[in-house]
Simulated assay, not measured.
Amino acid sequence: MLRSGRRTSAALSPKARKAVLTAHVIASVAWIGLSVCLLVLGLTGLLHADPQVSRAAYIALGVVVTPGQPISGLALVSGIALSVGTKWGLLRHWWVVVSLVLTAVMTALVQLSLAPLMRGAAAKVLAAAPEVPVADAVGGDAVSIVVAPAVAITALSFVAAINVYKPWGRTSRSGPAHPAATRRGASPGSPATSRSRR
């Protein structure tokens, strides 16, 4: 639910903001956790000495990656809702712009690249004859399967960090700072204004 106020023309009500923020935090944490699981499975498939364990790890990739598509979409949509529906705005602060751009790019990569890659590897292993080595069945995708979640973990951790520290100040589209913040000498990312967001 949106409400009108002096600070923003359209802001989420406190209950709606908390609900959206909760969804955003859960989705973001789940996304990082899922990426860690994919990395562990990819490394297991690539490095484990037991072919049966490697085979099981690659097959599991096709299942584990499935929640990544809705989770990444929820993280992006809830992030946009928090930006538009709160005083931070969509284009007022550089940390918001960078955060949303990176999240959008990562979401697109999950949908168009990561999920097909993991499912493809699982399908190759399942279709391979028992005598075919797992490494041969997966082929050149073995390295990509490790690199992709490692990049995701790095990017998502960076997004989490800038959401905490809120660096780089305001954009040229932000307009003047809120008078109350100016009187207190607080910047948009200062503890005073950060508490108002929460």
Rank of each mutant, 00 (worst) to 15 (best):
R119Q: 14
A121C: 12
A121H: 03
A122N: 01
A123W: 05
A123G: 07
A123Q: 15
V125H: 04
L126T: 15
L126A: 14
A128G: 12
A129N: 04
A129H: 09
V132I: 13
V132S: 02
P133R: 00
P133C: 05
P133K: 00
P133H: 01
V134Y: 06
A135C: 04
D136G: 03
D136V: 12
A137I: 00
A137F: 06
V138M: 07
V138R: 02
V138S: 09
G139K: 04
G139L: 09
G140W: 10
G140T: 11
A142T: 08
A142L: 05
A142I: 08
S144C: 08
S144M: 13
S144T: 12
I145L: 15
V147K: 05
V147D: 09
P149C: 11
P149W: 09
V151N: 08
V151W: 07
V151E: 01
V151F: 12
A152W: 13
A152D: 13
A152L: 11
I153E: 11
T154F: 14
T154E: 00
T154C: 12
T154A: 15
A155N: 04
L156G: 05
L156E: 13
L156H: 12
F158Q: 00
V159Y: 05
A161F: 12
A161H: 05
I162Y: 08
N163P: 03
Y165W: 15
Y165G: 03
K166E: 08
